[in-house]
Structures are given as structure tokens and as C-alpha cells.
Design a protein around this nucleic acid. Structure first.
Lengths: 354, 354
DNA sequence: ATGAAAGCGCTAACAA
DNA sequence: TTGTTAGCGCTTTCAT
């Protein structure tokens, strides 16, 4: 039988009201003496306030719902960690619900959360965003992270795809490349359209004419990168560099180049995107741009915390920047590039392996 | 203002008790007519029972706590999905808490869960198992999944490592290999000791003498597999096959072989373990044994459900079997192996790529 | 500064 | 078959 506030009150010879006040650091005055006594007793007796009773009474819990579409992607768990760490520091816990891209399951999840006098909800990569307006969720605070398809919206955190693509492309330009091919992802992803924009903007700034024939489209998978690169490298004026919209397609491109007898990075420099584990595991290790998942999670949690704290100004969509991870596939650390960068731990490891 | 049971009762012209009984399918009799009316009304009004009130009253919630050590491994999210899908079908939701291998955080997590009249807890890969006995968790049902270091115990679900290693080794033996090297993981993992046992048992059954000089140890990372294989392949009687205790080390071994000018799988057949995404992404694609994460999650959830249903017989540790994924690195599908297997979709894809 | 008491929404024992 | 009611453990007015 768990110890209740009554047990503590009895032990202290005080009323439950006083115990509650002492323990909750409410504004209400409690003499230091009794407060101290109560705290000691509570700790000693192992008193754990019953959260169900507390939230029944106050209609607020310290729980945030996190609804994710797919917990098995490489990105989602990291976003969750960012959210959880930030929220934990503020005294909240998370209920994580996985919807598996099923709008019905998502509705059900929202219903579940609504039952629990949840304070707010963070949607991760959620498809069925329209959920907000439905389901009497109006009063709850809602934040979105990592929008994949839907329109830009208030209260959301997304990666700065344009910036990331600019980083990648600029790096290739800095390395002296003029003919830079680009393998894009499927059309309906923001990651595709924005990364293309970033690529184009750097080309423009560098005074390099945009060449449609240097663009191909894949479906994020290795295979599609392989096939796209095969076509791209068949170009009469073969590109000397290639930027792929994700690491898997970059890997496919590397395989294609190797099949054609081209050496990476000497005959073709390759840069990927996402910085998935893959990028630092394969040979050559892939230079890539990080998707700042952890930071996105943090930002989402912070935004929700602000909302919860009563800040009622509209929150604009917030873009989080990733960074360039220079590794082997781009040639930046190869001796003949003319530039010697201080090798990172990963780069040193690589050197020893090859 | 959310609609309560009182609102429904008033609308139906009945007492709240009747509404409660109708909605909860309790044993208590309710006339079909009123039951129907109540259900319609509840749906129409969007009635959501307040879970806090319900669990305050009944001291039981439909929530299961899932405590994981590291949500960012490739395995944990899949285990979670297995747990969640199974539990959801039984009407439970999960609270997922990530401890980041910190025993203090774990204690805190358990405390948090205890406050919420949680029904049971599933620990995933948890280091600090001793938690069970502490913290007044005695009355709660607890199940463990994927023990990494601790002793075998009741109420736990683990992968059948010995079986998996037997699968891998037998495959190599079937392919005609006699000198099969093995790269093990760190000593303190069950995955290491048991996979070694499986390897040895097949050798024994095949009448192949165990040769200590064919064994090396890595730390699960690519680099260690690379170095281990370099040593192993330097053997006067070079092994013709190599089994690595995980996919990353298998990849390292492949790199080592390639560096030595050996062709995979012709000069060296390689089999990995875990079936991480990596295994089907690299060239050559790695033959490997699956770690049945989803099934382990399912089994854990089922075990907890049984416990919750009142089954009070002790549950022995349950071992879940993975399966062999035949791909390129072992030579089983190469023409000169003398055996032609029906290629899987993945294998077909691979053929097209090489 | 402290206590008494109401009541959050619900379930279940008891009455009718 | 239905209704009345106590009370789960807590916070928070209102008294004192």
C-alpha cells in the first residue's frame, strides 16, 4: 500500500493541507520549521504523490505527448532524445506514441492523449497534420518537428535544408569544381525542393550556369542513386563532382562511379546529406551535411515550453542548421587537393584503414 | 470544457452509474435499449472518459512503462514497435522513457512510473536491472527484453544467440568451408559468448577441429573487424570463410580482404550478424543473421500481458530465434558455388547493380 | 500559519 | 435493471 499525503500528515501531526503546501512550494506561507519536518518525513517514508489524483484535481499533468510517424527511422529517435532531454530538465515526461503513418492510429493516439489531461503535444514528422483542428485539441499546445510534406506552418521546427545544401555545394565549389551534378529526392518532399534551391543558389553566386542535364532524381534509396549517377556520368562533359540529396543515394553514386572505373574522390567528388551512420561506415567515408535532429528536438521542446509558460505570441516556423562533415568522398583531405585540413578523429581512423 | 460522464447521463436522462456500466462492458446488466442509447450519445457528444479519474478510482491504468537504455540504437525502436503493436491490440498504451544508461535516470524513471499507477514495466536492454527489488516496484509486473550483460533471469526475453550463430556457421560449412575464422565481440556481452558457443558447436558437429588461432576479438566497430581480419588472413593456412559477430565487423573484414586483394566471396566468404540496414546497403551485400527485435518486443509484451491477466507461474527466460539472410558475401548465390538459390528481391536488385 | 472541507470524474458497493 | 452514494488522493478555497 503506497504512502499517501494522509500518512505524512499524520506522522507530522499536521493537516494534509499543510503537507501539500509544504511539498509543492506553493505561494502559500508555511513555517520553515514545519516545512523542513514535512520534507524529511516525506523523504523518509518514501512518499510519492499520486499523479492521477493530482491531475484529476488540477486538470494538468506534467506529461507531454510525442506522436511520431515512424520510430524506426534513423532520425526520429534522435529527435525524441532532444525533446526528452529538454523536457525532462523542465520537469516533464513524455508519452511517445508511434502511429506508423496511419491517420486512424494517429487520431486514436490523440484521443488517448486527450484523455490524460496532457499539457501539449509534439508531432514528429507527422503526415496527418490536419489533426490539430479536429478532436478538441484546440486548447492544447501543439508543436511540429521535421515537416516532410505539408505546408510551412506556425509552431513548427524544420531543418534548414537550403542552408545545408548551400554548405555542400559551396564546399564543392571551393574545391574548384565547376560541373557539379545533383541527385535529388522525390518531388513531394521539402527536403528535395529546398536542397535543390540551395544547390542552385550557390551555383548562381559562383557564376556557374545551371545545367538541367546535370540534375537527376532518385527515391532516396541506394539503387536509385546508382542508376541516376550512371546516367549523369555518361554526360559528354562528365561532371567532376556530385551532390546527392541523401547519403544512401550518394553511396549508390559511388558504386556507379566505381563500376565505371572512376576513382573517388580523384575522378569524382561526392557529397551526401543527412550524416546517417552509413556515411562514416563505408569506404570511402562520405562527406555529408548533418540533419540536426537532436537540435530540432530541443528546439521543439523549448518552443512548447514557452507556449506552456503562457507566451501567446505566434511562433514562426523555425529552421535549424546542420553542418558539413568533411570526410573522404569529396577530396578535401586528399593530398593533391592542395589543401590540408586538420584531420578529424574519424578521418584519422580512415587513413589508418586505407 | 470537456464532456464528462455527467453530461452524458443528463442527456440520456439516466444516472451516471448506468452510463459507466454501459460504457465499460462490465458484468453488471444494462438493458440493450439504454446501452445503445448511451453509446450513441457518448459518441455524438465526443465523450472521452477522464483517465486520471478512472485510474485514481481503480488504481489501475491502461499504461505500460517501457524503459529503454538507448533509444538511438538500430534495435531498440524495433523492439519498441513490437511491444507497442502487441500492447495496443490489448488496449494498452506505452510510456517510453529513455535512460541513456544512467542508473540515476533509470531510478527517476521508475519513480515517475510508480506515481502513475502504471500496470507494468518492460525494460529494454537495461543495464541497471537490480532496479526491480528496490523502489516499491514489488507489486508491479516486470519483464526484461534483450539482456546484454546481466545474468539470465525469469521474466525475460532474449535473442537465441547460439541458434543464430549455428545458422551462420552451418551455412558456411554447407558451402564446403573447413577453415572458418570467427571475429567475436567484447567478452562481457552475452552476444559474444553465445555466438562463440554456437560457432563451436557446429564445428564440433561437422567434425572440424576448433582452432584457437582462427578466433579474434573486436569491439563491434568496423575498424576492429578490419584489424582482426587483417591478422586472421595473415594465417599460414588462410581461412576460406569468416563469421563476424556483427555486421559492422563483417564489413571491416570485407575491407581487410579487399585491401589484401582477396575477392569476396570467391577467396573469402563472409557472414555477419544482426541484419542491420548496413548489411543490405554495402557492396557486396552481407549475408547475415537477423536479430529478431520485433518478435522479441512482441514476446515481451505477450509475457507481460499474461502476467497482467493473472498468470502467476514463473516465466522462464524465453529465447527468440532469428533467421539467416543469404546475400552476396557468402558465395551461396554465386554461380561457381554449384548451388543456385532462387534469388530474393534483394539479391535480384544486387545482381542488377553489379 | 494552519486546518476543515469541497470536489475534480469516475467506479463499485449497496439499495431499491 | 437502475439509482444513490462513498470515496480514490490530491489541491485549493474559505475559515480561523
Amino acid at each position: 500500500m503506497p504512502v499517501t499525503i494522509h500518512d505524512v500528515a499524520k506522522a507530522a501531526g499536521l493537516s494534509i493541507a499543510t503537507v501539500s503546501r509544504a511539498l509543492n512550494n506553493t505561494g502559500h506561507a508555511v513555517s520553515d520549521e514545519k516545512r523542513q519536518l514535512i520534507h524529511e518525513l516525506a523523504a523518509e517514508m518514501g512518499y510519492q504523490p499520486n499523479e492521477a489524483a493530482r491531475s484529476l484535481r488540477t486538470d494538468r499533468s506534467q506529461i507531454i505527448g510525442v506522436i511520431v510517424d515512424d520510430i524506426t527511422t534513423p532520425f526520429t529517435p534522435i529527435i525524441i532524445r532532444g525533446i526528452q532531454d529538454t523536457l525532462k530538465a523542465a520537469g516533464y515526461s513524455c508519452v511517445i506514441l508511434n502511429t506508423d503513418w496511419d491517420p486512424e492510429v494517429e487520431k486514436e493516439a490523440i484521443r488517448k492523449l486527450a484523455q490524460h489531461s496532457i499539457k501539449g503535444i509534439i508531432f514528429v514528422e507527422t503526415w496527418h497534420r490536419q489533426a490539430t483542428s479536429e478532436l478538441g485539441l484546440n486548447d492544447k499546445k501543439v508543436v511540429f518537428v521535421h515537416r516532410l510534406f505539408s505546408l510551412p506552418s506556425l509552431y513548427s521546427i524544420v531543418p534548414d535544408e537550403i542552408y545545408g545544401a548551400r554548405l555542400a555545394t559551396q564546399h564543392l565549389v571551393d574545391l574548384g569544381h565547376q560541373r557539379i551534378a545533383y541527385i535529388n529526392g522525390p518531388m513531394n518532399y521539402y527536403a528535395s525542393t529546398d536542397r535543390l534551391k540551395g544547390y542552385q543558389s550557390i551555383l548562381h553566386e559562383a557564376g556557374i550556369a545551371f545545367d538541367e542535364s546535370l540534375i537527376a532524381r532518385g527515391d532516396w534509396e541506394v539503387r536509385s542513386g546508382f542508376e541516376a549517377a550512371l546516367r549523369l556520368l555518361d554526360h559528354p562533359e562528365r561532371p567532376t563532382a556530385l551532390f546527392a540529396a541523401n547519403d544512401k543515394m550518394a553511396l549508390g553514386a559511388i558504386y556507379a562511379a566505381q563500376k565505371l572505373g572512376l576513382r573517388i574522390p580523384y575522378d569524382l567528388a561526392v557529397v551526401g546529406y543527412d550524416d546517417t551512420e552509413l556515411a562514416s561506415l563505408v569506404q570511402p567515408m562520405i562527406t555529408t551535411v548533418t540533419l540536426p535532429c537532436y537540435e530540432m528536438g530541443e528546439a521543439a521542446a523549448r518552443m512548447l515550453l514557452e507556449l506552456l509558460a503562457g507566451s501567446d505570441d505566434y511562433k514562426e516556423e523555425q529552421r535549424i542548421r546542420g553542418e558539413l562533415m568533411i570526410r573522404e568522398s569529396c577530396g578535401a583531405i586528399a593530398p593533391q587537393s592542395g589543401r590540408k585540413l586538420k584531420p578529424t578523429a574519424i578521418q584519422r581512423r580512415l587513413t589508418m584503414m586505407s
